[in-house]
Computed example of a mutant assay.
Amino acid sequence: MDTPPHLPPADAALLDLLAALRREEYAFTTITPASHARIISRKPEATSLRDIFGWSLPFRESALAPHLLHLLHTAGALEEDGPLRRSTLRVSSLDGLLFLHSAFPTVGADAVFFGPDTYRYAALIRAELPRLGRVRRIVDVGAGSGAGGIVAARLAPGARLTLTDVNPEALRLARVNAAFAGVAAELLEGPGLDPVAGEIDLVIANPPYLVDAEARAYRDGGGMHGARLSLDWALDAARRLRPGGHMILYTGVAMLDGRDPLREALESALPALSCTLAYRELDPDIFGEELDNAPYRDADRIAAVAAVLTKNERP
């Protein structure tokens, strides 16, 4: 694979790592953290590429080919675990591509998350984007690994892709992931749409939507039981979209006594911003373990939802 000239050596090593794993026909589907913990409890040490780069298990240097070990070392993605080694990054499969993201467990403040939400987000983009007509500019807000934006860009040849995030490590991995996918992307550091200038045809977003005691950026969605950030990004997009533009929003909502507070807030606010809303549940019950925590004691469930906003052609 040709290395883009703008990639520093550490990131070029990550690009070479993805290419090497593809040659090995590597594939891995990332599951929820709770399920992941159950699986790795069965096996203390890695013996395969999927163990090392998927399950994030510690490994002996002899378990990994020397050229792959060298690439991890060059990328700064290798750490000691007693007498063993561990990759600080995971690699997951989606749409025939491979994506770098943070190793399990994702506890760091700069963790880059990828999991079942990513697969549902990509599926929503695949379902909705072809219906929207010509798209000239796509902005993936809080892009993380860049998976959503990359999926969208491949569905809209010729569209300009912008990825934003507050996390420099997310933008680093998104840059490598986009290069591996053969997708040109502009990467901007900053919250929401703040760093983006100009007209936007399509905003896509998979915001953090849980209440996180440590307020980690990849996980914490703020007030409204975690839905506040989703609401803020949706209303900001509604203000910034060109006439006829759209937003595809995938997020999670805590349902309260049968009510959906995010849907209610959007339905109340969007008409004044000249936007219409198509809204539906995608999965009625996700991250059920969160219901044991104090912030969710009054919630019925947490649901995955899809919201598609459309800016009216005329105010």
Score class of each variant (00 low, 15 high):
151 V>P: 00
277 L>G: 04
28 F>W: 01
77 A>F: 03
158 G>V: 09
6 H>F: 15
266 L>E: 09
253 V>P: 07
4 P>D: 05
229 L>M: 15
215 A>K: 12
41 S>V: 14
3 T>F: 09
94 L>T: 02
215 A>Q: 10
133 G>D: 02
198 G>Q: 03
170 A>H: 00
92 S>Y: 10
295 P>Q: 12
281 E>G: 03
161 L>D: 08
179 A>Y: 04
162 T>D: 01
309 L>F: 03
315 P>I: 06
196 V>Q: 01
157 P>T: 14
79 E>A: 06
35 S>A: 15
298 D>G: 14
147 A>I: 01
168 P>W: 12
20 A>P: 01
92 S>M: 13
82 G>P: 10
51 D>T: 11
204 I>L: 03
122 A>N: 08
44 P>E: 07
307 A>F: 07
104 F>N: 11
196 V>D: 00
71 L>M: 12
189 E>N: 02
248 I>H: 02
194 D>T: 00
1 M>V: 15
270 L>F: 05
171 L>F: 01
59 F>N: 11
312 N>V: 09
113 F>N: 03
246 H>C: 07
293 N>Q: 11
62 S>N: 15
315 P>H: 10
188 L>Q: 02
98 L>M: 08
168 P>D: 09
86 R>K: 15
83 P>V: 13
257 D>W: 11
211 V>E: 08
70 H>S: 11
201 D>N: 10
186 E>D: 09
138 I>E: 06
86 R>C: 11
237 A>C: 06
1 M>E: 10
201 D>Y: 02
193 L>D: 04
223 G>T: 14
281 E>A: 09
76 G>D: 07
160 R>K: 12
71 L>Y: 08
268 S>A: 14
248 I>L: 04
289 E>A: 14
161 L>S: 09
37 A>Q: 14
204 I>C: 01
222 G>Q: 13
306 A>H: 04
39 I>V: 08
39 I>C: 02
66 P>Q: 12
261 P>W: 05
136 R>T: 05
33 P>I: 13
180 F>K: 04
22 R>I: 09
177 N>T: 05
272 A>L: 02
126 R>P: 08
154 R>Q: 11
254 A>P: 15
191 P>Y: 04
80 E>S: 09
100 L>D: 06
131 R>T: 06
149 G>P: 09
